[in-house]
């Protein structure tokens, strides 16, 4: 079986290459081998609907969905935690009233998912999925439990650093992003082929939340801040807000 040492050597061989995005062709992440396009993407000018993002509103999302800790009769186990920040476009403008979705493992590193058979306990009081809409200034905020790291089968003794999956929309279709937020100082970073598929360390750091004592609530929860910058918008701020 492939060992961590094998994977770490493959990671080292590809490290440091420039690029703001993960390398889609990244053999250390074994599942990518048959699932990455071999051809370069074709450059296109966004047209029609691509200049707009779908609209979401309070009809779609209840405010209560931003709290992942009160979906069940009891309190979930683990470190109660607020994750908050702003969603910004590439020019630093807030992405207002837009959908943010998250999903994650519980404090023991187990997902509420049939395919996760890792022998860590499920928490009957924690499902691990949430949604919210950003405020006018782009702020999102979730109350959740800090997820644990968990094993997977990419190679022998493979473990993922603790993370929360984030799904984001911008003001344009072209800004669509699904990514993962990580916690500072995780000892598994260097070993993880998914995190290391972003071979530029500066770009990788853009996925790190920061502990923020101002977000921490006295005698209740710790606080993390993570601002999310999307790629640039193709529309100018002065264009009228009416779709064609």
């Amino acid at each position: 079986m492939t060992t961590q040492a094998d994977i770490s050597a493959e990671i080292a061989a590809l490290a440091g290459q420039p690029g703001e995005q993960p390398r889609k062709d990244y053999p250390p992440y074994r599942s990518s081998v048959l699932r990455h396009p071999a051809q370069e993407p074709v450059l296109a000018d966004p047209e029609g609907v691509e200049l707009w993002a779908p609209a979401f509103g309070h009809r779609d999302v209840d405010d209560a969905e931003a709290n992942l800790t009160n979906r069940h009769p009891g309190e979930p186990i683990g470190e109660r935690m607020v994750v908050t920040g702003r969603v910004l476009d590439g020019q630093g403008r807030p992405v207002a009233h837009q959908l943010v979705e998250i999903w994650q493992a519980n404090a023991a590193g187990r997902y509420w998912h049939q395919r996760d058979q890792h022998p860590a306990p499920l928490d009957p009081n924690f499902t691990g999925a949430g949604r919210c809409l950003t405020a006018a200034d782009g702020t999102y905020r979730f109350l959740t439990i800090k997820p644990g790291p968990y094993p997977w089968r990419n190679h022998g003794n493979a473990w993922r650093p603790a993370h929360i999956h984030f799904s984001l929309f911008g003001t344009d279709f072209t800004q669509r992003l699904v990514t993962q937020m990580y916690f500072p100082g995780d000892p598994l970073f260097d070993l993880d082929p998914i995190y290391q598929s972003i071979t530029d360390p500066q770009a990788r750091n853009a996925l790190l939340a920061a502990y923020d004592h101002e977000v921490t609530a006295p005698e209740y929860s710790t606080g993390y801040r993570w601002d999310i910058v999307l790629t640039g918008s193709h529309r100018t701020p002065f264009e009228p807000g009416e779709a064609p």
């Binding site: 590439g90 630093g92 999903w103 998912h113 395919r115 996760d116 992003l177 699904v178 853009a206 910058v229």
Partner: peptide, 17 residues
């Protein structure tokens, strides 16, 4: 400002999406 890079949806996205 550095845009947040993407990451895979992984095997458990059915939980959230």
């Amino acid at each position: 400002m550095i845009p947040a890079p993407g990451q895979t949806v992984g095997p458990f996205f059915h939980l959230g999406l």
